[in-house]
Simulated scan of single mutants.
Amino acid sequence: MRQAPKAPSRSSAGHALRNLFIVGCVLLWLVPVYLLLVNAMTPPTSYTGEPDWSPQGFALFDNLEVAWDQAGIGDSFLNSMLYATVCGLAAVVVAAMAAFAVVVLPIPKPSLWFWVIYSGTLFPLQIFLAPLFGMYADANLYDTRLGLMLVYAAWAVPFAFFLIRNQMTTMPPEVTEAAMLDGASFRRIFWRIHVPLMSSSLGAAFIFQFTAVWNDLLFGITLSRSPEVQPVMAALTTLNNAYSSSGPPVILAGALIVSLPTLLVFLVFRGLFLRGIAATAR
């Protein structure tokens, strides 16, 4: 006798639903990207006022040139590259030292120090804006690169500390004890042993902080106003106001310029990023 076909198992149905959910998430991300690319290459004179789903011409390079040179995105782009790179590196170094102190050094109440440092990620950024504005105005740090770099570096430390500290707690204490028996100082243990072993988590922390500083808007529009100091996200809002009459194509070309660095950083260092996330999640 012929056997009746088996009903689909729950596992196969769950697998199909998971794949459908993933495809939906991918489409939710790809559709705005597609609209950004199509409308960024549209000539401003051909823009009808509604989003175009198909190319109406090709003026991408002209729109990029207007956004980069005439609208001043280029100067702010270089400012953000400086802020994101320098402040990201500084935050990772300070966070690694703080994690080493909390996990390895014999300090009293390490859990208390952990929460003191990590609490910097628990408060909304808006509560810092008014005090920082007044303090920066009194200290002549308002609308200066140094002022923005100080606040970006300090803001990036707590989350980088959280990531690095998570991996450092998984390192066996016998490594530190053996180095101390050989006469190594804590400074030597940190730079020669812990930093090389934590390279993946340090890299992941830097990618996180580079992206966070690059995408910041609140501090940029609150603590700066001149094009020579403003980060690129603040300059993008200025571009939106200045070129709103010429249509979105120039503005979208500026948004395309702004989105490239973080995308390239992730694509180039995705292996290091994934290893760092896996290491900190243990």
Rank of each mutant, 00 (worst) to 15 (best):
R2M: 00
R2K: 11
R2W: 00
R2V: 06
P5H: 04
P5Y: 03
R10D: 14
A13I: 15
G14S: 05
H15Q: 14
L17M: 13
R18H: 13
F21R: 10
I22C: 10
I22L: 11
V23T: 12
L30W: 10
V33P: 07
L35K: 05
A40G: 03
T42P: 04
D52F: 12
W53M: 01
S54L: 14
P55Y: 02
Q56S: 05
G57A: 12
G57L: 06
F58C: 14
L60S: 11
L60V: 07
N63A: 10
L64S: 15
E65K: 15
V66Q: 07
W68C: 00
G72A: 03
I73S: 07
I73R: 01
G74P: 06
S76H: 02
N79P: 02
A84K: 07
A91D: 08
V102I: 11
V103P: 01
V103W: 01
V104C: 03
L105S: 11
I107V: 10
S111N: 14
W113A: 04
W113T: 00
V116E: 04
V116S: 10
I117V: 15
L125W: 07
G134A: 09
Y136Q: 08
A139Y: 08
L141P: 03
D143T: 07
D143Q: 10
T144I: 11
L146P: 01
G147W: 02
M149T: 11
L150K: 14
V151D: 13
Y152E: 00
A154Q: 13
W155E: 00
P158T: 12
A160P: 13
L163S: 03
I164F: 06
I164H: 05
Q167F: 04
Q167L: 03
P173F: 02
T176G: 08
A179G: 04
L181N: 15
D182F: 06
S185C: 15
S185R: 13
R188Q: 15
R192P: 01
I193A: 09
H194R: 04
V195C: 05
P196V: 04
M198C: 15
S199L: 13
A205L: 12
F206Y: 04
I207P: 03
T211W: 03
T211H: 03
A212W: 05
V213K: 06
L218S: 06
T222N: 13
S226P: 13
V232K: 04
M233H: 00
A234V: 06
L236S: 03
T237E: 10
T238K: 01
L239K: 08
A242H: 14
A242T: 13
S244C: 08
S244G: 11
V250T: 15
I251S: 04
L252K: 07
S259T: 10
L260N: 14
L260E: 15
L263C: 07
F269G: 09
F273V: 14
R275H: 03
I277P: 06
I277L: 13
T280Q: 05
